[in-house]
Write a protein that binds this DNA or RNA. Sequence first.
DNA 1: ACCGGATAGTTGATGGCTCAACTATTTTGG
DNA 2: CCAAAATAGTTGAGCCATCAACTATCCGGT
Lengths: 172, 172
Amino acid sequence: MRDDVAAADSAGAGTAVGEAEQVRWLDTDQQWAWRRFLEGTSRFFEALGDAHEDDIQVSLGEYHLLVQLSEAPDWTLRMSALADFLALSRSRLTHTVARMEKRGLVTRRPAPGDRRGVHCVMTDAGYAVLVAAAPAHVTAVRRLLVDVLDADELTTLGRAMAKVAHAARTGA
Amino acid sequence: MRDDVAAADSAGAGTAVGEAEQVRWLDTDQQWAWRRFLEGTSRFFEALGDAHEDDIQVSLGEYHLLVQLSEAPDWTLRMSALADFLALSRSRLTHTVARMEKRGLVTRRPAPGDRRGVHCVMTDAGYAVLVAAAPAHVTAVRRLLVDVLDADELTTLGRAMAKVAHAARTGA
DNA sequence: ACCGGATAGTTGATGGCTCAACTATTTTGG
DNA sequence: CCAAAATAGTTGAGCCATCAACTATCCGGT
């Protein structure tokens, strides 16, 4: 219990004698990359959230919700479509939309043609908030991500994360 | 209010005439990479969290806390050091450690030499939980990240995220 | 020796997220 | 055409994170 402890990501914790060992631990390079990813995402989202608190009237999640609506016809999207785009649970979306509705940023209407469905519509006030928030948001994304990387690094990052998203969607 | 709306990440929302325009919006490729990053991280952490709920007695955050302690001499770390390593706020760490202490995974002791300080020490029970959790954790990290990417993609991802972490740490 | 400010950590209130349970509607299979 | 299952969305309880305020200790300068 001294050296074998180090790095539960890579070392032989759990190698009980006589028990089938089928875990492929991470090698040094893989572990390094994984930890950079972990720390980087954590600090990135924390810093981006801070930027939103400083300059902006909406949280990061609310901002992305408004962005999705701004790109939809009539600023309108089904709740379920919104949940898919934003990778949010239905429940969380309901709560978030309810809060934003109270602040006048969106409204809800019954969906025509499917009486189970609900449409979420961005209001003019919501659009105004989005427009006001966009400059600080984009500036922060540049400062914390886009301008920090070479163009090909950014491209590779995008491609890699597309693969990761796909793996998470399917392999769940 | 129809076409100019699309993509508040890139388009001219906020371009009031006569007002100085100094925001550099994202071009198409940059925006694509940024959105892949956003979706990928979101789905990745959700899926990894699910894996922890299925097979493991500790949440992802608690697991990483135990990993840090397992790599420290005497399974012991100052609260502030732990907070730095895990990129956690002091308050959040206090609450998390308090919960884990109740479950017997760690204990707290006054730090020798600095009467303000507190040492966090992993218990044998905590180590046992870590050992039990490691295989499923590593398997999930492989399935969702490491094995999904080419070796050079993973390396580039690690390098890129190291840069991002640095930018977030300094430019905050 | 002392005062001001920095550092270490905790606390409690508030608010958001997660989970399970629930209603209502639509679709599917027999 | 009906029953069972799938889909859409909401609700409320409990848990966790965040924030501001607070105590205690240490350091740095005079």
